[in-house]
């Protein structure tokens, strides 16, 4: 399978802190690829490098065969790299609908004059976006009932869902989700897992995810990379990663296989 995104020898440091050291891994096309690793391992920093917000000191990021170095964040967004944020980053001054429509920004063209007059092409474009958002995103994510609400009034779980909606409006090729189910209850997690799988299958989008919930990670990931202290320890299929003693040691601080299984797969225990 070809990789849509390839990270090669990426290094990033902040003063003395080495957030990423010689990180290499690949994201195969049309998979759910997950990066796991303890807090502070450098996962969010990696996303920020891919988005173009952090500039790695070394290494390259190759997206659809093209090296991204020097490409500005908004251009990367337009190329199909969409994401959500670990700390919800919705625009509080806008309604749910406007937040989602903002995601479509890079695919819209109307200029200032058209905007001022709200006439002709500008108006048609707005209508087209509205109808796309309504039919393909709001419906799909089941957020019809909140479209008019200001985002600040929503529950945490719903806010995460609106962030996903906004990222989908960007028409992503690679959808990066930074801890999409953190802080959610069981039911919300299940919904989110279902959405992620649907997005991959029905939309043909590659999902790159950071997540701590091992049950979900093992359930829906096709490919996993493990990051620790800024370094990739291993990557591979969920089963392989789960068995890797180095991962067990680094990630869970134990080599006791039983307790590890429990931690990695809490669902089984409950069931």
């Amino acid at each position: 399978m070809s990789s849509i995104l390839e990270i090669n020898n990426l290094s990033l440091s902040f003063g003395g802190v080495k957030a990423l050291q010689d990180v290499s891994f690949r994201v195969p096309e049309n998979t759910v690829t997950t990066v796991i690793g303890p807090n502070g391992a450098g996962k969010t920093s990696l996303f920020n490098c891919i988005s173009g917000f952090y500039k790695p000191q070394q290494g390259t990021i190759r997206y659809q065969g093209e090296v991204l170095a020097g490409v500005k964040p908004p251009v990367r967004a337009a190329m199909g790299l969409a994401r959500t944020f670990q700390n919800i980053a919705l625009f509080r001054g806008m309604t749910v609908l406007d937040n989602i429509k903002l995601g479509a920004h890079v695919h819209m063209k109307s200029g200032l004059l058209g905007s001022l007059a709200y006439f002709g092409a500008a108006r048609r474009e707005e209508m087209a976006v509205r109808s796309h958002v309504e039919q393909h995103i709001i419906d799909f994510l089941e957020i019809d009932h909140i479209r008019r609400q200001p985002v600040a009034s929503l529950s945490y779980g719903l806010q995460k869902r609106v962030e996903l909606a906004r990222a989908l409006a960007m028409r992503p090729k690679v959808l990066m989700l930074d801890e999409p189910v953190a802080g959610m209850n069981r039911e919300e997690k299940e919904d989110m897992a279902r959405f992620i799988l649907d997005i991959r299958e029905e939309w043909g989008v590659t999902v790159l995810m950071v997540e701590h919930d091992m049950g979900m990670v093992m359930d829906i990931s096709d490919h996993i990379a493990v990051l620790n202290f800024g370094q990739v320890i291993t990557e591979g299929l969920p089963e392989e990663v789960q068995k890797n003693p180095q991962v067990i040691e680094a990630y869970l601080g134990t080599s006791d296989m039983d307790s590890l299984r429990k931690k990695l797969n809490p669902e089984q225990e409950v069931a």
């Binding site: 988005s51 964040p73 625009f91 429509k101 903002l102 920004h105």
Partner: peptide, 25 residues
Amino acid sequence: NVFRTRIGRAFIAIRDRDISAEILG
């Protein structure tokens, strides 16, 4: 009118969270 379109949304996004806005395009 401006605030019914992409340009107005971009303005508000910059006010609310400029870095995220930039990453979103």
